[in-house]
């Protein structure tokens, strides 16, 4: 697959320009993400002043603001931060290992597999399965679909193209089954459509707990895989020559990406754009090493999703707007501008 542009951090010509020290860039963006998240704690159906936020965060009590903060807004903010970071990192991983700029977390079939199982359960076993179990079903469906993809792309993931094509086909198949089920389900699909459009409405600590064991180890492990990841982006043969067991590491990194996206899709449903576009933004913003690129993706993803969540629940309050839409509306123009300004 030498035909693909190697998606190393430098392939966009970013290296030629001197940039602010990446450390400050990453910490800066991460700080902005957290600030936006904290600001978001105060904004909503009921406005909570900053002093109140600080007091209640420090000493939770039985006041309404305390309950809103602790039961609704704080877990939701944490989920948004983590989900954004995970999706972006998963996208970065998949783009690197398939060496294809069109790869995204949904490429492995995780998203559509999760959706398929939730929809099937809802339509076929409506009385047995309460919405409370959706995250578990989604987790199971997503990982199952991803395992099928991995199986189909050969036991050793010898070809990145094969992985990509298998993932795409599995996604199409699962999506077809989902739509077919929805069509035959009749009119009572409201709850499902809500889940299928993705979002963080009503997500709380229990959902955060479902997500954590997948996402946190994933995010931590990525930073121990940076060197093989960097070498893999040079191509299979150079990587092999430099002592990377290419097949092993490609499988491991794919698994990591699957864990990250499965955790997110279980809780937040399918959220497009972040995983596809944020990694490119990170590379173009002048991340020179794989480590910086991953860290920058993480920070940018968190920032994008936490701000999108804030907008999605405030812009048309009391209604919530689909978060995927807001993400693309905020991130898309920025992404466009960044690509447009790239020098050939």
């Amino acid at each position: 697959m030498s035909k693909f542009q190697a998606l190393s951090p430098n392939s966009y010509g970013a290296a030629r320009r001197q940039k602010a020290a990446p450390f400050f860039l990453v910490t800066g963006i991460a700080a902005v993400a957290v600030t936006v998240g904290l600001l978001g704690l105060g904004i909503g159906a009921q406005y909570i002043p900053v002093s109140e936020i600080i007091r209640v965060l420090w000493l939770p009590d039985d006041s309404v603001s305390s309950i809103i903060l602790w039961e609704l807004r704080l877990p939701r903010m944490l989920i948004a931060l983590l989900a954004g970071a995970s999706l972006a990192v998963a996208g970065y991983l998949l783009q690197s290992i398939t060496r294809n700029p069109l790869a995204s977390p949904s490429l492995t079939g995780v998203t559509s597999g999760a959706a398929m199982l939730v929809v099937l359960a809802f339509v076929c076993l409506p009385q047995l399965i309460s919405p409370y179990y959706y995250p578990f079903l989604a987790l199971f469906g997503g990982t199952a679909a991803a395992s099928i993809t991995l199986f189909l792309s050969g036991p050793t993931l010898s070809s990145p193209l094969r992985l990509a094509l298998a993932g795409v086909s599995v996604s199409f198949l699962a999506a077809a089954v989902t739509t077919l089920t929805l069509l035959s389900a009749g009119p009572q699909t409201g709850t499902l459509l809500f889940w299928l459009s993705g979002g963080l409405q009503g997500r709380s600590w229990s959902q955060l707990l479902i997500m954590l064991p997948w996402v946190v180890p994933g995010l931590v492990c990525v930073f121990f895989c940076l060197r093989p990841l960097a070498l893999l982006s040079l191509g299979d043969e150079p990587a092999q020559a430099m002592g990377v067991n290419v097949r092993l590491w490609r499988s491991l990194l794919a698994l990591l990406a699957i864990c990250l996206s499965a955790g997110v899709v279980a809780v937040a449903g399918p959220i497009a754009f972040v995983g596809l576009c944020v990694p490119h933004m990170a590379r173009m913003l002048g991340a020179r090493t794989t480590g910086t690129a991953v860290a920058l993706s993480l920070a940018l993803g968190a920032l994008l999703l936490v701000s999108a969540d804030l907008f999605s629940r405030t812009l048309a309050a009391p209604r919530e707007l689909p978060i995927g839409m807001i993400t693309a509306l905020i991130g898309g123009p920025i992404f466009l501008a960044i690509i447009y300004r790239q020098k050939a």
Binding site: S11, F273, G324, A328, L329, G332
Partner: peptide, 19 residues
């Protein structure tokens, strides 16, 4: 590469507007 990236960026914005 530029064509591809521009396409997905603009596509995402248009899709979001439609949604």
């Amino acid at each position: 590469l530029r064509l591809t990236l521009m396409g997905i960026a603009l596509g995402a914005v248009l899709h979001a507007l439609a949604m």
